[in-house]
């Protein structure tokens, strides 16, 4: 069985003034389909950088990232964007809903970008997901009228609406209180089980780490140990 994400001798160097920051130096790992993986480590160890590379928002300085076997280093901005739209879902620390849109419209947004579904199909997909994250009642509201937990559930629905193979979440619970954070992880885990979606998320929170099927620890841009659950 091929890995849904394969990272092979990946280096990421950021220029910083006259010097350089080695955000990632020599990462190798495989993530299998349906895994519920967390990336852990102290601040500045390179968690976000790694997730950005897997999320096709950036390309490695050297080495290669494969998404379902497809190398991304040589892809154009256009192709990367298409890959993000079709295969990946994103959940952000600060939720990142589009403020001018309603809950329904936010979830519908990626479907409209894909542009291949009729109005009825979109309606059906969005309604189903909103039910799944328990926000049917709020579908007409603006994100500013929602609580943090509700917003993050909208974000989860948006990330899942296109049926992505991989969902990436950079510290999805950092802006939530621990009880709400736990419920969000709970929800992600449920979806991981029911939809067979691969989840990769980062966190500082040991509580959250315990929920993960697999923990990848980073330190100074390197993998410390690959502990399987």
């Amino acid at each position: 069985m091929t890995a849904v994400v394969r990272i092979s001798s990946v280096e990421k160097i950021y220029p910083l003034g006259k010097t350089q920051v080695h955000a990632l130096s020599g990462i190798d790992m495989d993530i299998q389909e349906g895994e519920f993986t967390t990336i852990a480590g102290p601040s500045g160890c390179g968690k976000s950088t790694l997730l950005n590379l897997i999320g096709c928002m950036d390309v490695p300085t050297s080495g290669e990232v494969y998404i379902e076997g497809l190398p991304i280093a040589k892809l154009s901005d256009r192709e990367l964007t298409k890959l993000r739209l079709e295969k990946l879902g994103f959940i952000f620390q600060s939720f990142n809903l589009i403020p001018v849109l309603t809950v329904f419209q936010n979830v519908e947004f990626p479907l409209l970008l894909q542009g291949r579904f009729s109005r009825a199909e979109r309606q059906q997909k969005v309604t189903a997901l909103l039910a799944e994250v328990d926000l049917t009642a709020q579908q007409g509201q603006r994100s500013s009228e929602l609580s943090g937990g509700q917003r993050q559930r909208v974000a989860i629905a948006r990330a899942l609406v296109t049926g992505p193979r991989i969902v990436l979440a950079d510290e999805p619970t950092a802006n939530l209180d621990s009880a709400t954070g736990e419920r969000i992880i709970e929800l992600m885990k449920t979806i991981n089980r029911t939809h067979k979606t691969t989840f990769i998320f980062s966190t500082h929170d040991p509580q959250v780490m315990r929920q993960a099927g697999r923990i990848i620890r980073l330190k100074d841009g390197k993998v410390v140990t690959g502990q399987d659950s």
């Binding site: 256009r78 964007t81 739209l85």
Partner: peptide, 13 residues
Amino acid sequence: REIGTMRAIGAQR
């Protein structure tokens, strides 16, 4: 941030 989000979730330039 809003534009970055749109780009991240798949909006072309």
